[in-house]
Design a protein around this nucleic acid. Structure first.
Length: 272
DNA sequence: AAGAGGGGCAACCGCCGAATA
DNA sequence: TTATTCGGCGGTTGCCCCTCT
């Protein structure tokens, strides 16, 4: 009773996507929304596996993605979230506007891991590699930040530390249970900088806030101004998809939309 | 100038859990 | 209750590009 492959292995194209394939996929999703991925390749006229289509869309074609390297504060956010959540990249990505789990995972493996090792921190446990020669500090700078945050913002998610996520994190054996050991000035500076991001972190960690990654808006073609031909003045889907493909080089956030608050974004999405 | 080696990243693979018949 | 399907996730692979020798 083995699991069937998600698609017919024969005749399924693999490897890098072409611009033509991207266009077909974007066209299809803009027209039909995100539906059954298994059916997408057939309906969109692609010789691809449904999974491959989903991956391509979520990791590369989705128009709300930021492109380019993670900046310093994003990196610090990843480190902190990883300390809390472990290798649960999708959970981490859900807290990172415009970033995908794959992107974060890649960045972790290629950049952050090395950075932490260089600083003498075990990227898995977030403990000092010289633990045996040092006394473990009872609280990390990060923890101090949290405590400070709790002092100043007792009602914030971090302040109360009682969100669903928090209890889930606490119940799991993630590295968050371990304190970080800071062993040099550079690291200290890094975490001081992280403290400055605590407000942002508090906001991102709030379960009550709608996820930045919530793509429900994309599931309803013609429902939002982004894809509203008349509102945007696109004369055809071709224009629209061409514009979208161009956007991949910049990212929606480069257009300044990320400065809008939730209400404004909601208004944009509903077109009211 | 050319080859070797390494890094970075897109994409694939296989497993898991939820949903459904 | 069980078999099956499907979407999603994390780990891994392989290709491309850049740097070094």
């Amino acid at each position: 009773m083995g699991r069937q492959p998600c698609c017919d292995k024969l005749g399924v194209k693999k490897g890098p996507w072409t611009a033509e394939e991207d266009k077909k996929l974007i066209n299809f999703i803009l027209t039909n929304g995100q539906c059954c991925w298994r059916a997408v390749p057939k309906l969109a006229g692609l010789s691809r596996c449904g999974k491959s289509c989903r991956l391509r869309w979520t990791n590369y074609l989705r128009p709300d993605l930021k492109r380019g390297l993670l900046n310093e504060s994003e990196e610090q956010l990843v480190i902190d979230l990883h300390a809390r959540l472990g290798n649960r990249w999708s959970k981490i990505a859900a807290r990172m506007p415009g970033r995908t789990d794959n992107e974060i995972k890649n960045h972790w493996n290629t950049h952050i891991k090395k950075k932490l090792l260089k600083m003498g921190i075990d990227p898995v446990t977030h403990e000092s590699l010289q633990k045996e020669t040092e006394e473990i500090k009872t609280s990390s700078s990060s923890e101090k930040c949290l405590q400070e945050s709790r002092k100043h913002h007792p009602s914030s998610p971090l302040g109360s530390a009682n969100t669903q996520e928090s209890s889930e994190e606490n119940s799991s054996s993630t590295p968050s249970e371990n304190s970080l050991t800071i062993n040099d000035y550079e690291t200290e500076t890094m975490f001081e900088s992280l403290c400055e991001d605590q407000m942002l972190l508090s906001h991102l960690l709030s379960e009550n806030e709608p996820s930045f990654m919530d793509t429900s808006a994309w599931e309803l073609p013609n429902n939002g101004p982004m894809f509203n031909n008349h509102a945007n003045g696109f004369s055809s889907w071709d224009d629209c998809t061409t514009w979208l493909l161009d956007c991949q080089d910049f990212g929606v956030h480069d257009f300044g939309l990320d400065s809008l608050n939730d209400v404004e974004i909601d208004i944009l999405n509903t077109g009211n």
